[in-house]
Structure formats: structure tokens, C-alpha cells
Design a binder for these strands. Structure first.
Length: 591
RNA sequence: GGUCCCGUAGCUCAGCUGGAUAGAGCAACUGCCUUCUAAGCAGUAGGUCACAAGUUCGAAUCUUGUCGGGAUCACCA
């Protein structure tokens, strides 16, 4: 429809003012609520061509469109705005098309392939609130890309080696008394995290003791015996020491068991998992190759660098003087590895916090310098940090909001408020538990996804997440109402059916909104932004609630109207569910 | 200091490829359940869109500068 009007407007300008214009000049937008009409054409850009007043130009174009486009029924002019009214038959046929398309909103195979990396946990402690935002965001973006017709590989990188895990290992060796997650009845990741904290306590104590003996703090941090021990452990791990490797495997396996539980509660999954222990040596060869090709340079001490002067950044170290790699060396290696494994990849998306903006800018620049054209397709999906009211989360100060605890408490909140309302008494216990989980998680996920990813956000753990207003449960509630309507309709032997009926404005508004769904999916995909989808669904749901509360549906006397409204509701429900599912949020039949 | 991001109602956020009188939610206040689920709906109140210039018929939106907040520029990961 929009395209037809744009084309016809170009034609109108040609005929009326003998001027051919680019269709990009034609600005067609939704008519604002306070004016009459469906679509609005902004005529200001044509004034120079028409050499007439805005009103007159708009009137002339309006006349032309009404006469030449069948579904343009009427128009009115306000200043330079030409408001067009579209025939309601057109909207009926739109609804009809939506109702017949079981995958409405999703696009057919684009032939493009993307990889989305959306988790990169360390194995020395449990997941926290920051991980939740990261993972929900990446998971949702992966789904949105799929809906856009792309093939998507979801992947995570596990930072399973390094000094951090050695710290946990060492503390466990020293103070663990051979206890295990089973013997202590602790979740594995929390268990290992406990020893990370133990290490830190002991480490701090040693530092203080050294400082008291007169050592300056910086030296003390390097000289503390337990720290040195951890470093020795890391060296042993790197040389393949059997005992250390075996301990490492055991402790990591505890962590993975814990992560699996958390991921399951979160409702996310991965197609591929990369372990840093497998990949941390990759990249060295490529750097050495780059040195030969004179893309990089070597300093006198033997360290290898890349000059980024042309890109207005400081030079970047790629290999230390002793030949060991730094973080970015690994990232170069893994990126190349991924493209080798999936040569058809069109894009590689890293869902990582904005504190690493610079890192990824450097990484992509390096890859381009090394001649990998696919680096153009690499994208850093950067998201803002979550802060507490008192500032950043600090693991050392114990202010980190734990992912498991948070999910547990919001599910508990959902349980309390669901029970207060008492709509679900006749569900079984399992169904109820499921429902509480569904509601609680929708509150959390929606809360984290509705904000533009790149913006930071403040989270107050003392205030429970709201379940009214612009929230996941509000949307679920609307969905449940629709399902209840449909079920009652069925019992009364009505079927959802679209026919040409006398329609009202609210019904047409709903169809217009539904019609936008595919373009919203597209926009959310292009911008990697579930927030765009959230806003759209919220708008749709608000519009539906307004309709629901003011228009009679099952009480309508005219059967065709009643069945039309059922069909309308059913399709609104379909879109709500589809959109929310893309964000990993499930919809209940009752709540 | 260099680079990047952000600043919209008391709070949390939309709107930003320039378009009509800047919108939601929360909190506050007023109505609405003998009628399809009140986790709802309708309404009232709340704004120098950080500030200042510039471009334009038109700026919250684009440019520049100022102020305020954050991130980063590690032989940490």
C-alpha cells in the first residue's frame, strides 16, 4: 500500500508540475492520533517544484491520489500535511492475509549466515546480573536474525583457563578439606566461587602483613606467597602437569554443572561452545605471519606490535617479548578459526559489554590489516553496564547480584502476586510452578531487554522488579485474556472469522499496528535491538487493552461482528506470542 | 590529555535517516468490577528535550562549542 502511494505521488508530481523526482523525496508516515487519516504525506519538500502554497499543493496531490489509487478513500490537509484515509476494505484484506500466514512477521531464507557469540563466562565464579543482560540480549538477537531469514549459529566462549581459575583451585587445595558440591549440597559454580573468595581473603591478609612489615603495596601484591603459588600453578598447568590438569578438569566440571542449571532456568542454549583452553594458543602463527608480511613490527626486546597511527589509535602489542600471547592474539586466532569452520559466514557478532568497545575496534582493524575482508562483517554488539544505585557491582565487595538468586527471587515475587489474584486455582501444582517461573522470568527478561542495548542501566536489587505497566507480565496477562476469550467463544460455538463488517476505529487501529510487525522485525534485526520489538509489542498490547475494555466482543449481538472481533483478537495474540518468543519469553494460557 | 558513548516529566525509559501541540510506564490524585481475567481501562497533574550558538520553511533529532556523567587508551582477561 505504502509503496503504491509513493509511486503514485511521484507520478502526481510529474503530471501536475512536470518534474520528475526521486521517490526518496516522498515522505510517507503514520498519521498522528490527533488527526484524521491513516497515512500522511509531507508536502514541504515539493513546494519548490510546485511553486504553490503548502495547502494548495497538498490538495492537488490529494485529489490525484484519491482518483488514482483505489483504496485511498479520502484526504484532508493540515498545513503542509496531507492526511490520507484508506478504505477499510483494504485493512480487512490485510487482516485476512495475516490470519492466513502462520509465520507472519518472519522472512524467508535470506541465504545469509551469522554467528552470534553471547556468553563468555569465567569458570571461577557463578553468573551475575551483567551476564543475564548479555545472554538475554544475544539470545534474543539470534532469534531476531533467524526471523529475518538468516541462518544463525549461537555460540559461547568459556574462559576456562588462566590465573583466575588457578586461584580457586589453590584455595580449594589449601582450605577445601576435600569437600565437593555434593558433600556441601552447593551448586557447582557457587562452590568454586566460594574458593575464589577464600583466595582473595587470604591474599589480602598476606598483603596487609607485608605492608605492615614496611613493604609498599604494589610490591606486596606481587610478592604475596599465595599469589606466587597461584602463578606457579598456572605455569604447571601450561606445561601439562598431570595433577594440576586433573584438578582443573574436576573443578571446571563442577562449574559446568552449575552453569547448565542456570542456562536451563534462563531458557537459553548454544549450538557451539569454544573453550579458551583449546584456543588460547591460536593466533600466534598469524601474528608471526603478519610480521613477515610487514603488517606488524618488532621492537628491540622482541615483542611484536601493530602500528595503528593511521587509525588514530595507540600501537597495540600482539606478542610479548617472551613470545607468549595477549588477549587480542587469541581473539585474532579464534575469529580466523570460526571463518575457517564456517566459510559461508556473513557476519560474526560479539555480544560483549561496552567496556570493550576499544578492544573490538582494534581487533577488527587488525583483521582488516591482515587482509581478511570478512572482518567487515564483524560486529561488536555492545551493551551498557548495569549499575547498582551505589555504583558499579564489585565482586570483591560482595555487591554482585547473583543470577541464580535474582531469578529465584523474582519467580517468588511472581508466585506471591499470582496467588493474591487467585485466577489459577484449578491448575495442577506443576502447572502452577511452571506459570510462576514463566511470569517471573518474563518480568526479568523484558526488564533487561526493553532498554536500548547500548545504554547503561541502574538496577536496584532492594526494589523488586515491577510487574505492572510496561512489563513482561502485563503483556502475558493480555495474551492470557485473549486465550480465555477464544476458549469461551469456542464453547459458545463461535468461530473466529473475518468478514466485511461495519468496523470501528479501534479495530482498524489494531490492524494497522499488526501490519507493521514484519517491518519491526526487520528493523530490530538491522539494529540488533530487541528493545525495538519490546516497544512495538507494548504499543500493540496497549491498543488491544483499550479495544478490549471499550468494545464488546462475546457480548456483541451481531454474529459477524462478534466473530470478526474474535479473529482480530486471535491474530493480535498470535503476534504477541511470536514477538515475545523471539525474546525467549513464553506466554501462558491463563494467569 | 586522546578517542567513544550518554544527558528528554520526581523516577525508569520511548521518540533521534530533520516534520504537526515532545510520548509511555512507575510514583501522586480522580473515576470504572451484579457485565468477555481490575497484573486492566479512562482521566488529572507533571517539560526552558543539560546549556549556547549555527544550518533549515521547520531542530529533542544535524554541526560546533560549553558543562555534567560513564567507558577506554594495560606486556589484565
Amino acid at each position: 500500500m505504502e509503496q503504491i502511494i509513493v509511486d503514485k505521488t511521484v507520478e502526481a508530481i510529474q503530471l501536475l508540475y512536470h518534474h520528475s523526482i526521486d521517490s526518496k523525496l516522498v515522505q510517507l508516515q503514520k498519521t498522528k492520533k490527533e488527526f484524521v487519516g491513516d497515512l500522511t504525506l509531507v508536502v514541504f519538500p515539493f513546494l519548490q517544484i510546485s511553486k504553490k502554497s503548502p495547502e494548495q499543493t497538498a490538495t492537488e496531490i490529494g485529489n490525484f491520489l484519491v482518483n488514482s489509487v483505489e483504496d485511498v478513500e479520502n484526504y484532508n490537509v493540515v498545513k503542509g500535511f496531507l492526511n490520507l484515509t484508506i478504505n477499510s476494505n483494504h485493512w480487512f484484506s490485510v487482516l485476512n492475509k495475516i490470519s492466513q500466514d502462520s509465520n507472519f512477521g518472519t522472512f524467508s531464507d535470506s541465504g545469509k549466515v551469522f554467528m552470534v557469540e553471547y556468553a563468555s563466562p569465567n569458570t571461577n565464579k557463578p553468573l551475575h546480573l551483567g551476564h543475564l543482560r548479555n545472554i538475554f540480549l544475544g539470545y534474543s538477537v539470534a532469534n531476531i536474525l533467524k526471523a529475518n531469514g538468516h541462518t544463525v549459529y549461537k555460540t559461547q566462549v568459556i574462559n576456562d583457563r588462566g590465573i583466575h581459575i588457578c586461584k580457586s583451585m589453590l584455595a580449594w587445595q589449601k582450605y577445601g578439606n576435600s569437600e565437593t558440591p555434593v558433600s556441601t549440597e552447593m551448586k557447582g559454580d557457587h562452590f568454586v566461587g566460594k574458593y575464589y573468595v577464600e583466595f582473595d581473603k587470604a591474599y589480602k591478609k598476606e598483603i596487609n602483613e607485608l605492608v605492615e612489615k614496611g613493604m609498599d603495596k604494589e610490591t606486596a601484591e606481587k610478592e604475596a606467597p599465595i599469589f606466587k603459588e597461584a602463578q606457579i600453578m598456572l605455569q604447571k598447568w601450561e606445561s601439562g602437569d598431570e595433577n594440576i590438569v586433573s584438578l582443573w578438569k574436576t573443578m571446571n566440571s563442577w562449574v559446568y554443572e552449575g552453569f547448565d542449571v542456570t542456562y536451563k532456568t534462563m531458557g537459553v542454549d548454544f549450538d557451539e561452545i569454544y573453550y579458551e583452553s583449546d584456543t588460547y594458543l591460536l593466533g600466534k602463527n598469524y601474528v608471526e605471519q603478519g610480521l613477515k608480511n610487514k603488517i606488524f613490527y618488532q621492537k628491540e626486546d622482541g615483542s611484536i606490535w601493530c602500528s595503528l597511527k593511521d587509525d588514530k589509535m595507540d600501537d597495540k602489542l600482539l606478542l610479548r617479548a617472551d613470545g607468549t600471547s595477549v588477549y587480542i592474539t587469541q581473539d585474532i586466532g579464534t575469529a580466523i578459526e570460526r571463518y575457517k569452520k564456517h566459510p559461508s559466514l556473513n557476519g560474526l557478532i560479539y555480544t560483549v559489554g561496552n567496556e570493550q568497545n576499544h578492544h573490538f575496534k582494534v581487533l577488527f582493524t587488525l583483521l582488516k590489516k591482515m587482509g581478511y575482508n570478512w572482518a567487515e562483517g564483524c560486529y561488536h554488539l555492545s551493551y551498557g553496564m548495569i549499575e547498582l544505585p551505589e555504583g558499579k557491582m564489585k565482586s570483591r565487595e560482595g555487591t554482585v547480584v547473583d543470577a541464580d538468586d535474582l531469578m529465584c527471587s523474582i519467580i517468588q515475587d511472581a508466585k506471591t502476586s499470582t496467588q493474591e489474584r487467585g485466577h489459577v486455582e484449578n491448575l495442577s501444582e506443576t502447572e502452577k510452578e511452571n506459570l510462576y517461573k514463566m511470569i517471573g522470568l518474563s518480568g526479568l527478561k523484558y526488564y533487561l531487554l526493553k532498554v536500548d542495548p547500548k545504554k547503561g542501566m541502574v538496577f536496584d536489587p532492594k526494589e523488586s522488579i515491577d510487574l505492572n505497566g510496561n512489563t513482561g507480565p502485563f503483556i502475558q496477562y493480555t495474551y492470557a485474556r485473549i486465550q480465555s476469550l477464544l476458549e469461551k467463544g469456542k464453547k459458545l460455538n463461535y468461530i473466529a472469522k473475518i468478514s466485511t463488517v461495519q468496523s470501528n476505529e479501534k479495530e482498524i487501529n489494531l490492524i494497522k499496528l499488526m501490519n507493521e510487525y514484519p517491518s519491526v522485525i526487520k528493523e530490530a534485526g538491522v539494529n540488533y535491538s530487541p528493545a525495538i520489538l519490546c516497544n512495538y509489542i507494548f504499543e500493540l498490547v496497549k491498543e488491544f487493552n483499550n479495544f478490549y475494555q471499550t468494545i464488546e466482543i462475546l457480548r456483541e449481538e451481531n454474529k459477524s461482528k462478534l466473530e470478526f472481533r474474535l479473529a482480530l483478537s486471535e491474530n493480535v495474540g498470535k503476534i504477541i506470542k511470536s514477538g515475545m518468543n523471539l525474546m525467549g519469553i513464553e506466554m501462558p494460557l491463563k494467569m
